[in-house]
């Protein structure tokens, strides 16, 4: 079963041909990473899949529903966290989550909100307005809002951009938990290590098409076998940062 099937997808903004025949299949229950440089069209593709944009040509099916013909069913079966925060600044963090839970017809919106606040380390911040949050906290609230309702497919457009290393690892764990519970996750990212760490399959979007697709092992085979070099392995900057700052979990409000 494929959670997402994309065939011959084309999309242009006037003379700018962003997607020129994209084919993609995301297996249900997998974590799928979409890589691409700035302006490659990742956000455009994600927005077409989530029915926010219409395609010029081609077909997209989400959990078997056609995005053009059955947008309502598509929206029922996925939830999206866009690249840029979409938060109501006048409501507190908790109220934002309750609003989403009510719109998603959660039987107990308050409990759903509290559970997500806890999962994203925002319990104390929940009573405050997002304007008092740090950038990373706002991003975490935004991601939490994207998970309200427990849709079987979750689309995350650059979920960890702007997060510190701990929050990033926390986000990775949440994504792994989602996949373990059977949720399909499609995420876009600029970070190659993120795709390497998380994804069951990886696709590279470049010049309007998917130029490579497969598991990490598949993609590794594309390059000549690694030559053995005798060098001492230096710790990466991330190792150093985590050693000194502590990777056990950031204090609330970090």
């Amino acid at each position: 079963m494929q959670a997402i099937e994309v065939h011959g997808l084309r999309k242009s903004y006037k003379d700018l041909h962003v997607l020129r025949g994209v084919d993609l299949a995301v297996p249900a229950g997998s974590i799928y990473a979409l890589l691409g440089s700035n302006g490659a069209g990742k956000t455009t593709l994600v927005q077409i899949i989530s029915t926010l944009l219409s395609a010029d040509a081609g077909q997209v099916r989400v959990n078997g529903f056609d995005t053009a013909a059955q947008p309502r069913q598509v929206r029922e079966s996925l939830s999206l966290t866009g690249q840029f925060a979409a938060i109501d600044g006048v409501h507190t963090g908790r109220e934002n989550l309750i609003l989403l839970a009510r719109l998603r017809r959660d039987p107990d919106p308050e409990r759903a909100a509290d559970a997500l606040l806890e999962r994203f380390d925002l319990t104390e911040a929940g009573a405050r307005r997002p304007s008092t949050y740090s950038g990373g906290m706002r991003r975490r609230l935004d991601l939490a809002m994207g998970l309200v309702g427990g849709a079987p497919l979750v689309l995350l457009d650059e979920p960890t951009t702007g997060l510190d290393p701990q929050s990033r690892i926390q986000m990775w764990n949440i994504i792994r938990e989602l996949a373990a519970s059977g949720t399909t996750v499609l995420l876009t990212t600029q970070y190659l290590d993120e795709a390497e760490q998380l994804a069951d399959r990886i696709a590279i979007l470049h010049d309007g098409t998917i130029i490579q697709e497969g598991t990490l092992a598949d993609l590794r085979k594309l390059l000549p076998p690694a030559t053995i070099e005798h060098v001492l392995k230096e710790p990466t900057l991330e190792d150093i940062f985590l050693t000194f700052v502590g990777s056990a979990g950031a204090p609330e409000g970090a």
Binding site: T51, S79, A86, L103, R104, M145
Partner: peptide, 13 residues
């Protein structure tokens, strides 16, 4: 302009 409309439009409402 602040993205809330995008979020609402992605919901089944």
């Amino acid at each position: 302009s602040e993205g809330m409309m995008l979020r609402l439009r992605s919901l089944p409402i």
